[in-house]
Nucleic acid binder design. Structure first.
Lengths: 249, 249
DNA sequence: CCCGTCGTGTGGTCGGACCACATGTGGTCC
DNA sequence: GGACCACATGTGGTCCGACCACACGACGGG
């Protein structure tokens, strides 16, 4: 049935839908109905192709999309790690998506900041309620690392991200945590530029460290509202301070 | 240089990176540096392939990913709408991504609800500050439509989504609006199931309509905090009421 | 019993062919 | 001269068949 352009059946009336979209819909349908679930293995590309009457290229394009969405991982060779498996790791995909759109300027950075604040207020409030000792340990660890004298801009920023992410994870809401990471990561280049433009980085680092400490304290105290307010002030304050340095282009 | 597995150059040391990833990185690099921006046209697939020393399949897979991210649209034929153009419409991609992960249960629906609340609190607060007369008109329109007697479950739900989306758009934050839509759309199947399980749908619709009206009133009054609180109660309340109906699986 | 080898199955890649579609260009007919 | 039609051209869409790289598992020799 390969090269049959001759109108396979009566379904030809449908709009010219690309084949890989049909394949994609087929797979997503099985996901929606529970026929396929995380951890399952998809049929081999070749089998899927013949089963759906499509070419392997079409199947591959569909799988490529699923992979980009973070719902599938592929491995070569044989064995348990080979083949196409349904995973469920939205983080990287989300980050990729947001980053692309920030780069394309289809999303304004101030919008990202506001969204971050909204999400982190929530995750911080959750963290204040649910954080366990080990979560606090992680946070404290990041705080210590950030206090290292002579720390570089990039390292500081990455620790900063890790700190905020740890809060989100302590909150226990997977989606909020993933979104927080995605937004924070998407802003990384912007943040680095801003930090590098800061005249007195050490004092800026000290100020941010102090704010982080205050946030942690509020979380430790279980005061969600206070922690949330401090997070908002922390994020908002930094961007307000950094924004004046506008890069050309 | 096509089938050359013989270590093209010194770059062989790099990990086995799939070719489409290289192509993708190449394009994203041009986006990051501003060489390519929204509205621009990518080279033809064949040209890109020869230019990068890759096969057309590889290029197509990379483009497929970009398309899935909502950064590219393709059109056949010639003319201004043909070829591969950089767009910047994150909405559909975001929705697709979230929906997939909700279906795969890699994201818990209660997490989605909490995230929605966090985002909609923000957008509602923004709407209370920035909404213009035409925004209010749209909101009022949706409210009227939802009040139609004998309205069906699906229609009501879609209008509900439209109402919340309109608020997000009135707030003026593109990212928050897109995220709101994505989360709301991802929850659509779940919401429909819940609504269909409601014994007395008309009275439920009336209750929700009343809450919507109250939210709109607060926005009209410019009281962001009140509006935000009402939105939170509205969303939280509905899910709490509907959750008891747990579907097997 | 251990270990190397080879078979087999999986994704990764390629190139070339052809289709469908939309436009532009030119010639033709009135 | 102007309206119109046919073909050349360029773009994505699709498919096929082949081969590579890789990893596991079975088989057989030492």
């Amino acid at each position: 049935m390969a090269g049959s352009r001759d109108a396979e059946a009566g379904d030809a009336r449908a709009a010219r839908r690309r084949i890989h979209e049909v394949v994609l819909a087929h797979i997503e349908d099985q996901i929606a109905t529970g026929t396929l679930k995380a951890g399952d293995r998809l049929p081999a590309e070749r089998d899927l192709a013949t089963a759906l009457g499509a070419s392997r290229s079409a199947v591959r394009e569909a799988i490529r999309i699923l992979e980009a969405m973070g719902t599938v991982v592929q491995g070569t060779g044989s064995g348990p790690d080979s083949g196409t498996l349904l995973s469920a790791v939205p983080g990287a995909a989300l980050t990729h998506l947001i980053s692309l759109h920030v780069m394309l300027a289809s999303i304004d950075t101030t919008d990202v900041v506001r969204a971050r604040i909204a999400l982190e207020r929530e995750s911080t409030r959750l963290a204040a309620k649910h954080a366990r000792p080990q979560d606090h340990a992680v946070l404290a660890e990041h705080l210590t690392a950030m206090a290292a004298p002579g720390i570089g801009v990039a390292e500081f920023n990455d620790l900063d991200t890790a700190f905020h992410l740890a809060i989100a994870e302590a909150g226990g809401n997977v989606l909020v945590a993933e979104l927080t990471t995605a937004l924070r990561t998407a802003m990384r280049p912007t943040l680095l530029r801003a930090l590098q433009a800061v005249a007195d980085f050490p004092s800026m680092a000290a100020r941010l460290a102090g704010e982080h400490q205050a946030i942690h304290d509020a979380i430790l105290a279980g005061d969600g509202d206070l922690a949330a307010a401090r997070v908002e002030a922390h994020i908002d304050g930094f961007y307000s301070a950094a924004r004046p340095h506008r890069q050309r282009r």
